[in-house]
Design a protein around this nucleic acid. Structure first.
Lengths: 127, 127
DNA sequence: CTCTTATTGATAATGATTATCAATAATATT
DNA sequence: AATATTATTGATAATCATTATCAATAAGAG
């Protein structure tokens, strides 16, 4: 016996999968409470941390502010923190992986993980 | 009167300038203590935070672990956290700014700041 | 159905960061 | 040079997010 599937774990995964709003730990907890009134905060922390460890979830630091946001690690992509609306926007840049590989080869290093966070103004707010 | 130059501020700036080891807040405090036995930890926090706000210092989140490291924001560059020796290596990639500009234009967004943190194996440890 | 133990919920503990505030010292003004 | 103003400091308390603890629960193997 190594891993067990619990109701709580399923709820948390479902929240991450259905709410692509890059929620904070607190927001995930609040959403989880709506599904299960009795879920504990520590349970949310434990599960999210394990998902990050296992590489299934990305932990996004804010460029300016404190704190972290979380996102499902589906396709490699980056995030833009919008200074105007405050949202975190997914940026799918085709050449991202290519660029990372280029850095690795140019600098003779091995890159296992990468994190690119942008800060500025999103498409919507620019208009 | 807006800003004042203090002995403490100078010590902290000198530490950041001379020690390109990407120290943590604690490490900066320890180094500062060697220069001035009476410097307070809160003073280090206050000064570093202001330098980050003013854009003179970069706050680098660890990809895997918790906590932050700090670095003078001289030329735009990125950082590689080495999983072998634990050091943070500066990576000066010529096309970095070009790549960021490309993302901005491809996605119709304005990018004011960016943060790229890499995790893997550095040049030295690879050998 | 029973047993093992991973996981949970509640709560205490931790630890890093921030707020508070009187004392100090930088610098503008006299 | 002396004084006044107030930004900054150092010490400490307060805060807050995260983690550790632990008995109770429940997932899943046998």
């Amino acid at each position: 016996m190594n891993q067990r599937n619990t109701k709580q774990k399923e709820i948390i995964l479902k929240i991450l999968d259905e709410n692509r709003i890059h929620p904070t730990m607190q927001e995930i907890y609040d959403l989880a409470k709506k599904e299960d009134q009795n879920i504990g905060q520590a349970t949310v922390y434990r599960n999210i941390n394990k998902l990050v460890e296992d590489g299934m979830v990305i932990k996004i630091p804010s460029v300016g502010e404190e704190g972290y946001h979380y996102d499902i690690n589906n396709h490699p992509h980056t995030h833009l923190v919008c200074n105007s609306c405050g949202k975190i926007i997914d940026i799918f840049e085709n050449d991202y992986e290519k660029f990372i590989k280029k850095i690795a080869s140019n600098n003779s290093v091995i890159i296992k993980k990468s994190l690119l966070v942008l800060e500025g103004i999103c498409n919507n707010c620019k208009k």
